[in-house]
Design a protein around this nucleic acid. Sequence first.
DNA 1: TTACTTATGTACGCTGCCGCACATAAGTAA
DNA 2: TTACTTATGTGCGGCAGCGTACATAAGTAA
Lengths: 257, 257
Amino acid sequence: MLSPHDPRQNYLLAALPAAEADQVFPHLEWVPMPLGHVLYESGVQMRHVYFPTTSIVSLLYVMEDGASAEIAIVGNEGIVGVSLFMGGESTPSRAVVQSAGHAYRLSGQWVKEEFSRAGPMQHLLLRYTQALLTQMAQTAVCNRHHTLDQQFCRWLLLSLDRLPGNELVMTQELIANMLGVRREGVTEAAGNVQKAGLISYHRGHIKVLDRAGLEARACECYAVVKKEFDRLLPYRDEPSALAVHSTSLPLRKGETT
Amino acid sequence: MLSPHDPRQNYLLAALPAAEADQVFPHLEWVPMPLGHVLYESGVQMRHVYFPTTSIVSLLYVMEDGASAEIAIVGNEGIVGVSLFMGGESTPSRAVVQSAGHAYRLSGQWVKEEFSRAGPMQHLLLRYTQALLTQMAQTAVCNRHHTLDQQFCRWLLLSLDRLPGNELVMTQELIANMLGVRREGVTEAAGNVQKAGLISYHRGHIKVLDRAGLEARACECYAVVKKEFDRLLPYRDEPSALAVHSTSLPLRKGETT
DNA sequence: TTACTTATGTACGCTGCCGCACATAAGTAA
DNA sequence: TTACTTATGTGCGGCAGCGTACATAAGTAA
């Protein structure tokens, strides 16, 4: 592939100091992340961790009756497969590619070795895991207390923050599966938000027209998660995160390792 | 206090090998955990971690409008304050004593030192944190999909698993706050379960009469969490966990360090 | 064009929980 | 006893989201 890509498109990798990066980057494997691809299944031992760059991954739990609910979203700010270094090797949830793109992956062996060095990598991974804890906690709160409209906005914002651009390719059917609600419910919520002029929705393509309006319409859960991620992972301030931008655009095209 | 107590009443502490225990135990402080006591507040830096022995602690998020929702329950199987060693030093949630009793606490300084040794203590703490992740995730799923009756049973079982005995002292008002529902809702759920002969409820005292029945009435979420805790923290098999019982009774009365 | 699949929109009755108001009962203190 | 607080039980209108069924519209392939 000649497409411009760089491990630093992922914030966690970008935040590694040069010395660590030199050790880790050669072992990264650039992989495509097709929509719907299952990175790991409930209870199955993982082989790799994934650092998404242009893709988004959903962690979701699938119930016995087939219904599902999203637990957390991981994009270019994080890593999929924390249980590899946390020691469990698997989880009861499933990881599915929610938005197609690419990721860098690293073998479980290597993550564990890097983690055990107790250096910057370990530090980053632990802080990311705590951010993940917050995201899950807030999902629980949101599921309990907030309306579908609010949850739709929260979900949209969380997803957008993890992707370049202000557009999302995603059918209402898929969103419904993520949120654990009916497809019709999403139709209505999306309709409301569109009537309010905040987004335009056309057959699986969502474009955000008024980001501030979206944030106002979402519940506090979005802000709580956002703030906690910013606090725990302030990559912009890391001297090593070479020129990582104060905006939310993570891409540095045309750069190579 | 002459009451028999021992750090090993807490599973995490009990699982430490003798060498580590000798280092850690002298720095433990035995503290009372009165009902309603707030161990840490949202966003405030923590000073200690707590290892509950005979108490239960609720991690809950309090919304802007005052409504709340429980994120996770911690008892004698775990530790309160994971963000101290995860690196965040605080979280957006609050920790409240849900069932009065005691705990051992350790200064943040000491946990971090122990953690950084990358020994058995770190290993245990990380695995516990992964179990906590699962509990939070399942709370989110449960809030989304299951009825109040089911959630009440799940909550009751999770609480009981973290306490000695088969009785719980807890008003419906408090349970409602934990679950994030109306007090009347809990009245009804508890009434249903009582009519079914599974519990007896009398002014804040819940006694379990038919544990198997309760488990059957709860949703799959309870079993998922239980199974994952058992998998990640199989203390019974640790050679160091001196004679820790194959049943769920954690108390070893009359023993001292 | 035509036929077909996919994505979205709409309607209707049902249910679980909410918000509120109030009633009852069990403990507690004088 | 009486008065008071605390804990629980009950009833009712309202509403968000569910399950279901069906309609429409946009793409796709012949």
